[in-house]
């Protein structure tokens, strides 16, 4: 079990960046993806973030459940928009056959284009967020949020929540095992649903008890004292952070310039074949 949620300890260049720099990167890359309505731009941002996550954390990009989930979201977007988006005009044919679904018309290239842009934007944002949380220790992430202006109380709430989730997950497994040892049958998803009550009651009670203990413990350790606490590990912006922020800013300025002079690079009107989905009208 990962005690720090998605964080993967490491010494990569991204690990050494200030969390604020990474937050700025995620916000900027997402902004650029949303400035344009073009598959190539969204795909590019998605691939860059994907490569950065894989390179810096060594996450197995094929097996990772979060990456799998994002891929499912992407596919669902393409399928749902392909069949249901009213922008769709040109039917998709494979070896002369139309792709159809009951109660829907055939799948359309324009709808697929729409779905791909939306899906890739979400995917890019997902990978960006994964990049942030997998290369930043939760403590540093919360410290950086506090530096940006997050009130201390909310910072503590976030810290406790981050700690609680893996603990609860571990405890839930233990409770589930305890119930199985009592003969509770947990094989199918229906069984899992039925076992919710035997798991949720002890889990909730355990969490409430733990929260009560933590509340007393932090009070006894001076939480709530009327002075601003110092951090054990201060986070600092370094030259490389400023350099990265500079590059990010230049990219954003260029993106805004293109957006203002060339529009949002939307090619949905011409997206009537596979090749045309990936065109960039510059």
């Amino acid at each position: 079990m990962s005690s720090e949620l998605l964080y993967k300890p490491g010494n990569s260049w991204l690990h050494s960046l200030d969390p604020r720099t990474k937050i700025i990167y995620v916000v900027t890359s997402t902004t650029i993806a949303f400035l344009f309505f073009n598959v190539i731009i969204a795909l590019l941002i998605c691939l860059v973030n994907f490569a950065l996550v894989a390179w810096s954390t060594g996450i197995n990009v094929v097996k990772n459940p979060i990456i799998k989930l994002l891929a499912v979201i992407m596919i669902l977007n393409v399928v749902i928009h392909g069949f249901a988006n009213p922008a769709g005009k040109t039917s998709v044919t494979i070896f002369g056959y139309l792709l159809t679904l009951p109660f829907f018309e055939s799948m359309k290239w324009e709808g697929m284009y729409f779905g791909m842009v939306f899906g890739l934007r979400v995917l890019g944002l997902g990978y960006g967020a994964l990049l942030l949380v997998s290369t930043t220790h939760p403590r540093d992430l919360i410290n950086s949020l506090k530096k940006i202006g997050l009130p201390l109380k909310y910072g503590l709430m976030l810290t406790l929540s981050i700690q609680l989730i893996p603990q609860m997950s571990e405890e839930a497994k233990m409770i589930l095992n305890a119930q199985r040892a009592r003969g509770v049958r947990i094989k199918s998803n229906i069984d899992k649903f039925k076992a919710l009550l035997p798991v949720l009651v002890p889990l909730t009670i355990g969490s409430l008890e733990r929260m009560n203990t933590i509340a007393m413990s932090i009070s006894a350790r001076g939480y709530g004292a009327p002075i601003k606490p110092t951090e054990l590990k201060e986070i600092k912006m370094r030259i490389k952070d400023y350099l990265v922020i500079f590059i990010i800013t230049i990219s954003l300025v260029v993106a805004i310039y293109i957006r203002l002079t060339r529009g949002d690079l939307n090619v949905i009107e011409n997206a009537n074949s596979f090749i045309n989905l990936f065109s960039l009208p510059l």
């Binding site: 405890e171 233990m174 409770i175 305890a178 119930q179 040892a181 009592r182 009550l197 035997p198 798991v199 949720l200 009651v201 002890p202 009670i205 355990g206 008890e209």
Partner: peptide, 12 residues
């Protein structure tokens, strides 16, 4: 029959 260390894990 397995009796866990923490009875709170079994009772609901």
């Amino acid at each position: 029959g397995y009796v866990y260390q923490n009875p709170n894990h079994q009772l609901f």
